[in-house]
Design a protein around this nucleic acid. Sequence first.
DNA 1: CTGAAAGCGCTTACAG
DNA 2: CTGAAAGCGCTTACAG
Lengths: 356, 356
Amino acid sequence: MATTRSGPNLNRIATALGVSVATVSNALSNKGRVSAELVERIRTTAAALGYVPSQAGRALRTGRSGVLGLVLPDIANPLFPQIAQAIEYAASVAGYGVLIADSRGDIGMQTEAISRLVERGVDGMVIVPRRGTRIADAGCPVAVIDTSSTPGNTVSADHWQGGAEIARHLRDLGHRKILLIGASSASNVQNDRIGGIKSALDATVKTEVLWIEKIEERGGPGCLLGLADKVQQGFTAFAAVSDLHALRALTELQRAGVSVPDSASVTGFDDLIWAPVVSPALTTIRMDMATIAEIAITALVNAIEKGGPGEALADEPPPGSRLVTAERSRVPMQLVVRQSSGPPRPAKTNLSAENS
Amino acid sequence: MATTRSGPNLNRIATALGVSVATVSNALSNKGRVSAELVERIRTTAAALGYVPSQAGRALRTGRSGVLGLVLPDIANPLFPQIAQAIEYAASVAGYGVLIADSRGDIGMQTEAISRLVERGVDGMVIVPRRGTRIADAGCPVAVIDTSSTPGNTVSADHWQGGAEIARHLRDLGHRKILLIGASSASNVQNDRIGGIKSALDATVKTEVLWIEKIEERGGPGCLLGLADKVQQGFTAFAAVSDLHALRALTELQRAGVSVPDSASVTGFDDLIWAPVVSPALTTIRMDMATIAEIAITALVNAIEKGGPGEALADEPPPGSRLVTAERSRVPMQLVVRQSSGPPRPAKTNLSAENS
DNA sequence: CTGAAAGCGCTTACAG
DNA sequence: CTGAAAGCGCTTACAG
């Protein structure tokens, strides 16, 4: 027994109008080979019948599914909504759907997630790789969103420049002792951000890096970071490499009775959902996700619609697994100022070699 | 020119072994009509050739795409990662992929997002509807995740019971004046949670509801909520209906010099990513997303594999747009205690009619 | 400008 | 246990 479709197909429209399916197809896809008048009638009938083209039929014929995969290291990452929203939007503008796949923080599952997507017939995929992973042969065009410190072509925010922005912001406010807060020293992104911060500061500004993972090794997860002590030591600014850590710093400081921003400033990264909501709101650095997504999707779509299976020739390089972004694209990050306090007045720094 | 596929198809395996494609198909899909020995050989060859079945071919033939849609009111909602992860997992266990669609907070775009998914040929969809929306005819099985106050069948967390849990927690700690904090009085979910809280408290506990939207009408977005005043008025607990508002309350209180949890307790809802990270960590209520997703996906898969287009008969009700969940499923929420302080000692309540 | 025909890869009655 | 054949709905050379 043949399967039935819920809706009408090209053939139903064709018979209804007494024309051929080829003509209906050409009319609906604007091939320009059908008379304007007939196109009009076909359009009307198709709409009246509630025609929805079958992706399966089209995909089988064209070799393209019109679907892209989005592979994420861990959906629970609070950056995920921004990424997913931007990718979904850029893809849908380009006429593609987005299939999600989560590797749940597990490196092995990344490969599995990728092949699940391949089996579903995606035309290409956007991968936000697990730290340090090299993307295995995916068999289709791939765009990688990560930091530019990752080997291979990628598109990413310019984390280094973002770090420099935040550093200049704090320096210009007069801070001379800044604590940099990161989670894991193995993270390329975090190291880039920290590198960027340091690069923009001269010797008149002292920094120290606090890695949360190291403190939690001793104190257990969620332990205090000892920031009140740091205030005692003269730190007046706390620059976290993510808003999540900024939040942790902010609440820990406030809980210890340190007034933010009067006695200490706190900054974050990524402009996550709570950055404008907390009191005081966080100064942070925003990735231009829309642009990043657009670059990734455009590169992918080009690769698909040029070198895709639809045009593959026997003697050209196989369409599989190319990193499609041209060189490494770095998209500037943008400072979002919500706190702008300098160090507290009566605070005495042990540095006096400041000019002006 | 016919399109080429990157990988081998059934026919390649069949010719390689000198058998028919039908046999290869039957062998690979475990139909049990092929001799064990041949199945073995076919399997080996398929693996050696790197065979990946074509979803397009299968979909065209069976009338099923193996893909479900996930429609969200707004990906930026911080609850989204939990939902997406749970749905993706449950779907992939059931052998389905998940296509995402975002209505970006716009009611009109919800319909559009739904038809985009239908055009992509999803077999069914999970919809987290925009507040108060009634789901238009989607033309495929639909599972709705919302509150049980929504008209129609839904699967959802038992927000009312969750509210009751948090209320008992605070009451048992001795709190007698609790401020309930919500964002919007038009939200069914928030009203359910607040209703649940109130329902579990007797007259010895006073509550008051503070709607953030109303305060922001005057004070502007992100303005202070005046919680320090509430402490003055004797409120010792602040129960927000979302962790985002709890976070706002926590930081505002801390900023005003109110010690949490010593002088005031703060609770949230949803156990969002930052709940365990802030200092002090938030007591909150967790939805059992895994169970909710499982119920939704199971209902969907049943509807698809029973009444789906593959079996549709002319005289049975059209397969379109059924809400597939049986009645309304309410999944219990779970209290996550991270703060457990009673009201401060010296605080004097104006109530004395307590037993014990 | 329009149509007849082939074929994408698969699954499923049906025949042997 | 195995195979030949039909057909899902579409697009695209090709012919007229």
